[in-house]
Design a protein around this nucleic acid. Structure first.
Lengths: 148, 148
DNA sequence: TAAAATTAAATTGTACACAACTTAAATATA
DNA sequence: TATATTTAAGTTGTGTACAATTTAATTTTA
């Protein structure tokens, strides 16, 4: 067994599957003018409006170098607004616009569509999901609110 | 159960875990002047020297838009060379340089080091690996030579 | 409380990813 | 065999990722 053989790598399938799934999101996200990372930010905001950039970064594992331009794009698209926390002017507070809030209704069907495209039944979905959550736990992926 | 909740997404853990593992490769790859995608190209070449760009792309799921600049970088670093296939001038043939071949010896220890950093025992490693290969199969991730 | 340390965003620079398109070579077909 | 089609790389443009640094606000501490 050659450890340097591509087929013996653990990371490569993560890398390949991640890219593949993101590609399959595109047909559903493009009509909403969203990329996959932008969609993730919107998921966070639909769960909890009025969050700091830092908090979004904590949940999605993205730093300000990635989020600053991404947030700028979402503001241009018209889905979010930014203000500063008056208590602590260092903090950027992100909130949904009316359009951003309304978008949730349109996005509601995406998870079901993606499951169709992936062709996994509920059992398979749960099996993979549980294993991923377990591994994320083992890797101690830092998260703010128990998300992984 | 809210399907739009971040914790109910199947793709997000793939995306997060993939990024996390790649980050953990960095301390081992940086001394070799390699990024993770560059390392993947070297893995392909250590398995089989003299391969076309197309073939590398098939195995790694990367297109010419990604590989052309990446190959340029590896040439600058001195690990590979490119020539054209005289039978078919469209095809770029990539080969290792002496330095690129010698690098394999240095890289041999990386998989073991990564396993240490990930903190997974052989059982866990195999469990995750099998499941990933299974899912890659279900998603019909196109590969050229049975790699996934 | 003034200086030092910490923190949150923003900025800079490098390196992917990939869609869409272009170019040139090879193959297929009318 | 000339034209059409296909194919492999390369190019262009947009959008992440992230390390490293900078800036400004807040907190700690001497």
């Amino acid at each position: 067994m050659n450890p340097l053989h591509l087929s013996n790598q653990l990371c490569f399938p993560f890398y390949a599957i991640s890219k593949e799934i993101i590609k399959r999101y595109r047909p559903f996200l493009a009509p909403l003018n969203l990329t996959y990372p932008q969609y993730l930010v919107m998921l966070v905001l639909w769960e909890e409006d009025l969050v700091t950039l830092k908090s979004i970064g904590g949940r999605l594992q993205l730093d300000s170098g990635t989020l600053t331009p991404l947030v700028k794009k979402l503001i241009q698209t018209g889905y979010i607004e930014k203000t500063r926390n008056t208590e602590d002017e260092r903090q950027l507070v992100i909130r949904l616009t009316e359009r951003g809030r309304n978008l949730e209704e349109e996005a509601k069907e995406i998870p079901a569509r993606i499951n169709e495209v992936l062709g996994l039944n509920k059992e398979e979905y749960n099996k993979y999901k549980d294993m991923l959550d377990e591994l994320a736990g083992k890797l101690e992926i830092k998260r703010e609110d128990g998300y992984c």
